[in-house]
């Protein structure tokens, strides 16, 4: 059990795996981008403009303004998560890419870490494009928004690691439904992206405080609308700690799964 929690020995060679994933992605990136960005842009337009027309101000801003920061962050979450669930599972189980690579000087730790780095990158690509879209809508009014790319990196890394840990247990594609329907989707709806949490029943706000995305959404709103507060450093720490923890755990879990 102890070897699950120790710091894995990852070498710089994990970048080779990142390069492999990038090369494979570049061949089909248009299709992939559509999948990653279609959803958040639709939410922004349909909910922000559509539903927003029927709503009064929310927390002192228009509904479009209210949901925009959270959609940037959640697009990173989904892109990183899908890469390190379906993408990694496909490579590990169906394509046997992991098996092929560990016959070279790379170790399984390098392979898994490289895949997590790639998942992080996917999250960054989605988040950055969404950030640009939100900017194009004229929704960014603060210099503090320069912090958003860093937040995107952090969120992407967290969900890439978390998803890889889930993948280490999954036996079939269908089993990802548990992770996505019971974890990611509730997180998307109960982390304050679409409505403020403070006027909901107590149990909902307690529940939402357990979700890392809640902090990320609060930070993103604070940065984009120029109201930095204690939530920025504290929330960041609350994202970084589980990210590092799950990075280590997921690499160790995957090693236990692949190496027998």
């Amino acid at each position: 059990m102890n070897d699950i929690f120790r710091i894995p020995s990852v070498s710089w060679r994990c970048l080779r795996v990142w390069q492999r994933d990038r090369d494979a992605y570049m061949k089909f990136f248009k299709l992939s981008l559509l999948g990653n960005l279609g959803d958040p842009i639709l939410y922004l337009v349909a909910m922000g403009y559509g539903l927003g027309r029927f709503l009064n101000q929310m927390e002192g801003m228009s509904y479009l303004e209210f949901i925009a920061p959270g959609l940037v962050i959640s697009s990173s979450m989904f892109a990183a998560s899908f890469e390190c669930t379906y993408g990694s599972f496909l490579r590990m189980i169906y394509m046997k890419t992991y098996d092929a690579i560990i016959a070279t000087p790379l170790s399984i730790e390098d392979v898994v870490a490289g895949d997590i780095l790639w998942g992080t990158t996917k999250g960054m690509i989605s988040g950055t494009i969404m950030f640009a879209v939100v900017g194009a809508f004229g929704l960014i009014d603060s210099f503090w928004a320069v912090g958003i790319p860093l937040l995107i990196v952090l969120v992407s890394f967290l969900f890439a690691s978390l998803s890889m840990a889930a993948t280490s247990f999954v036996k079939t594609f269908e089993a990802f439904n548990y992770y996505i329907t019971l974890f990611l989707t509730p997180m998307f709806f109960f982390s304050g992206v679409f409505f403020p949490l403070n006027r909901l029943p107590d149990w909902v706000s307690v529940f939402s405080k357990l979700l890392p995305l809640t902090y990320a959404v609060e930070i993103s709103r604070a940065l984009i609308y120029g109201k930095p507060s204690w939530i920025v450093p504290v929330g960041s720490a609350l994202l970084l700690a589980p990210a590092l923890f799950f990075f280590c755990v997921s690499v160790n879990l995957m090693k236990r799964r692949v190496i027998q």
């Binding site: 492999r20 090369d23 494979a24 061949k27 394509m95 046997k96 890419t97 098996d99 092929a100 016959a103």
Partner: peptide, 11 residues
């Protein structure tokens, strides 16, 4: 050369 063809089918 492993028993299964673990070629990179993305490439």
């Amino acid at each position: 050369v492993s028993q299964e063809n673990n070629l990179d089918t993305d490439l």
